[in-house]
């Protein structure tokens, strides 16, 4: 950080840009992966494939937006995968009873309610969110199995799957929703009271409390946002697939956390941004897509992703150390 301050004094734009890159190093990483895959596969850098990457990345991306809010707060939400499965099951399962849009609305509401429940439990019980939402992860998944009767639910009318089939060039509606939400939440973080409170609570909860911030209410709001975004993701997924599988979104919470952490948002809270998260999400999507284009076996893909995550974190640590001296 002291690097930044001396830079400002010396007034060099180049070095200010460099220090921005040091803090948002994920974009360098992203550029690097894009370059590698472009050279490795002729199919990679095509408008069509880029569109695919953005759409595939958007699902984890929407989850990652909520996760970023919760993580800057110094908390974590492991239940997003299960929540998205429930929202998707409700949005499809209820269509025959109450119609398409009411069903979608109920799906959204279920996500908000579960997020609210997570937040309330964390804020009021004083238990760590890791434990609370781990319970949520298992419990909500159980609920999904009960509701679906362990079967995949099918949409009664396939016009439902055409709703998100709107494209802006190669960019899908889903991707646009992701970017829209990401920009909106970045604005919340940087320009609103709630955003400011998020950083304060995550960095120094005592100071935030003494400054008169209602820490409990604040955390409940962010968990509710996170749950709602998980439901948004689940509904978009149900529209894309036309079915709601009880196993949908399994271990997606892990991919989400990986994307956020890869971006540079810190697990211990107080630091991060949506710019970082967008970078993390895109890097993850590019890696998955690129490895598949190269016909990499699934298990090798997992190994590469694991290695990349560790590498990114090591890089983060090194940069931080350099900033500190």
């Amino acid at each position: 950080m002291s690097l930044t301050s001396t830079d400002i004094r010396s007034g060099s734009h180049l070095r200010i840009g460099l220090s921005w890159l040091l803090r948002n190093h994920i974009w360098v990483f992203l550029a690097l992966t894009v370059a590698v895959f472009s050279l490795a596969s002729p199919y990679f850098l095509t408008a069509n494939n880029i569109g695919n990457i953005l759409t595939q990345g958007a699902f984890i991306g929407i989850l990652a937006i909520g996760m970023t809010m919760v993580m800057i707060d110094g908390e974590i939400d492991l239940s997003v995968g299960a929540t998205l499965a429930l929202a998707s099951a409700l949005a499809i399962g209820l269509q025959t009873h109450i119609g398409i849009w009411p069903a979608v609305f109920v799906g959204l509401l279920s996500g908000a309610a579960l997020g609210f429940l997570n937040g309330t439990l964390v804020a009021l019980s004083g238990m760590h969110s890791f434990i609370v939402t781990l319970g949520g992860l298992i419990g909500i998944r159980g609920l999904v199995f009960v509701y679906t009767g362990e079967n995949a639910l099918m949409v009664p009318d396939f016009s439902y799957t055409e709703i998100p089939e709107i494209y802006l060039g190669p960019i899908s509606m889903t991707a646009i929703i992701f970017f829209g939400l990401a920009f909106f939440f970045q604005w919340i973080l940087s320009s609103t009271r709630h955003g400011r409170e998020t950083y304060a609570v995550g960095d120094n909860i005592e100071a935030a409390h003494d400054a008169g911030i209602n820490v409990k209410r604040h955390k409940i709001i962010n968990f509710t946002l996170c749950g709602t975004l998980a439901a948004v993701c689940g509904i978009l997924l149900s529209m894309r697939l036309g079915t709601a599988e009880p196993n949908a979104g399994r271990i997606w919470e892990l991919w989400t956390i990986i994307a956020v952490v890869l971006g540079g948002t810190r697990l211990q809270g107080g630091f991060g941004s949506m710019w970082m998260t967008i970078g993390g999400v895109l890097t993850l999507a590019v890696l998955r897509n690129g490895l598949r284009l190269l016909n990499t076996p699934n298990y090798v893909e997992l190994m590469v992703m694991g290695a990349v995550l560790i590498l990114a974190l090591v890089l983060d640590k090194l940069l931080k150390r350099q900033e500190a001296t």
């Binding site: 950083y199 960095d203 120094n204 100071a207 630091f271």
Partner: peptide, 14 residues
């Protein structure tokens, strides 16, 4: 100051 007073990662303005 550290525990209760200031949010250390923030600047003076915030």
């Amino acid at each position: 100051r550290k525990e209760q007073g200031l949010v250390l990662m923030m600047g003076g303005r915030e």
